[in-house]
Design a protein around this nucleic acid. Structure first.
Lengths: 227, 227
DNA sequence: CGCCCGCTTGATCTGACTCAAGTCAAGTGG
DNA sequence: CCACTTGACTTGAGTCAGATCAAGCGGGCG
C-alpha cells in the first residue's frame, strides 16, 4: 500500500496535531502503523458488539458514532471531523456503531490494549489519552445539553460548536442530515426543522438553499440563546 | 519504588481494585500519595473553575459531580460510590462541582499531568486510565438515557444501576435526594416522585418508609421497562 | 447529440393535534 | 421543618400527515 506522494499541507486538526503519520507507508514514526480506508456515504466502519481490533482517525469527511435502543430509537453520541480519533475501547467490543456521514477517509490503527498503551512510547500514549479525555469532556458537556437544555438552546449550541469546528468563514456546511442532528440532540427531525426556521425568521441564521449550508448571521445572539 | 507489605483486605471497589493505598501515611507505595479527607453532608470538594490540583477516590459515602447553567439549571453527570475515582481533568481547571451527598470520606491524590501520567509507573497509570475509560463509558450510556429514554425508562435504568452498584441484598438505600435523582436523569422532582409511586402501584418496587429505601420487588419487570 | 419535460426520489418543511412531562400550589409525614 | 408526595392545570415537544423543494433519471424530439 503505497502512500500518495503528497499529503502536503493537510493540517486538518483544528486543535493540537494528533498522530501525524497517517500515510500508511511512513514507517518508524510511531509504534503503530495506520492504513487508510476510503468510505462511501453511510458505509459502516464497525457496529455495536464488533470485536474492537482497531481504532480510527478521520482524515476527510465526517463520521457518526451511535447506539440503538431495542425499539430503534437512536442516540448519536458524537460527530467526528478530520483530526478526531474514535473507536477506542477499554473492553473487547465496540460499544457503538460508526458510519461515514458522506464519503470519508479514515486511518485505521491496530488497537493497543490499555496495558500496552501505558507502557508504550510516551508521546504516542499521550496522544491516545488526550483523545480519550477530549471524548470524555465532550460527552460531559453533551449530557448538560441533553438533560437540561430546550430545543432552541440545543440547536444554538450545536450550530456554534459546528461553526467552531469546521467554519468556512461566515457559514457552516453541515456534513449531516436533519435526522442525524435530531438523533444527536435528543429531538425529532420536525423540531430541528421548526427551530431552524424560527431562527431564520428571527434573523439569527440564514438557510439559503433549504439544504445543509447555514449562515450564522448573528453569532452573539446565538451565544446568548445557548444558555 | 517499594511495594507495601500489606494493603490488607481493603477492597471497597466492586469492580477491579484501584489504587489500594489510600491510608495517607503509607509512603513509597505509589508515585503519588493520598491523604484522607472527611466531608460533611453537602460539603463542597471543589467547584467548576477551581484549579485542578488534586483528584479523588471515594472511600465511604457518596459524591455527586455536577454542572450549572447560568440560570441555575443543574445536571449531575455522575454519582461516585466507594471505590470510584473522580476529579481527573486534562486541563488546568475542574469542569464540575463535586459535593458530598451525605457524610463521606475521600482520599486526595496530587494531580499528575497527562504527560507525567503516560511516563510514570505502568500499573498506576493503568489504573488512572481505566478510571477515565469507565467515566467515559458511563457518560456515553447516560447520553442514551438522557436523549432517548422516557421518564419511566430513566427511573428503571437508574434503580437497576444503583442496585448493581450498592445493593444490600433485595433493597437499595439511596444516598441521594429526589432532587439529585431528577437532576441526574434530566427530569423534575415531581416526575421522579410520580414515577416511583406508579412503579409501586404496579408492584415493581416497594417504598416502605416514603424515604430513601427502595425494595426492588420485580427486577425482571424493571429490566424490561429499561428499554 | 443535447435539451427539455415529466416523473421519481429523498430530504426538508409545515400545520393540526396529542401527550408526556413540567409548573404551580397544597398537602403529608418522619 | 424539610423532603417528599399529590392534584390540577399548562405547555413544549412529539406524532401524524401532507406539502414543498431540489436532484437525478429517462425518453422523446429538434
Amino acid at each position: 500500500m503505497q502512500t500518495a506522494l503528497s499529503t502536503s499541507g493537510l493540517s486538518h486538526a483544528p486543535s493540537a496535531t494528533l498522530l501525524r503519520e497517517y500515510p500508511a507507508a511512513r514507517t518508524n514514526e510511531a509504534p503503530i502503523l495506520g492504513t487508510t480506508r476510503i468510505l462511501a456515504k453511510d458505509e459502516q466502519i464497525f457496529t455495536e458488539g464488533d470485536r474492537a481490533a482497531f481504532f480510527y482517525k478521520v482524515v476527510s469527511g465526517a463520521v457518526r458514532t451511535s447506539k440503538l435502543l431495542s425499539d430503534g430509537r437512536r442516540q448519536i453520541d458524537a460527530f467526528h471531523l478530520p483530526g478526531d480519533i474514535f473507536g477506542i475501547e477499554s473492553g473487547e467490543e465496540h460499544r457503538f456503531t460508526a458510519e461515514a456521514l458522506g464519503s470519508a477517509t479514515v486511518v485505521v490503527y491496530r488497537r493497543c490494549s490499555l496495558e500496552t498503551l501505558a507502557c508504550s512510547d510516551g508521546a504516542f500514549a499521550h496522544q491516545i489519552v488526550a483523545a480519550m479525555m477530549r471524548s470524555l469532556e465532550r460527552a460531559q458537556d453533551h449530557m448538560m445539553l441533553l438533560g437540561r437544555k430546550s430545543a432552541a438552546e440545543k440547536i444554538a449550541t450545536f450550530l456554534l460548536d459546528m461553526d467552531r469546528r469546521l467554519s468556512d468563514r461566515d457559514h457552516v456546511d453541515l456534513p449531516m442530515s436533519r435526522t442525524d442532528i435530531a438523533d444527536h440532540l435528543g429531538l425529532t427531525i420536525e423540531t430541528v426543522s421548526r427551530s431552524l426556521t424560527q431562527m431564520e425568521r428571527q434573523g439569527l441564521i440564514e438557510l439559503p438553499s433549504h439544504r445543509r449550508t447555514i449562515v450564522l448571521a448573528n453569532r452573539a445572539a446565538l451565544r446568548s440563546l445557548e444558555a
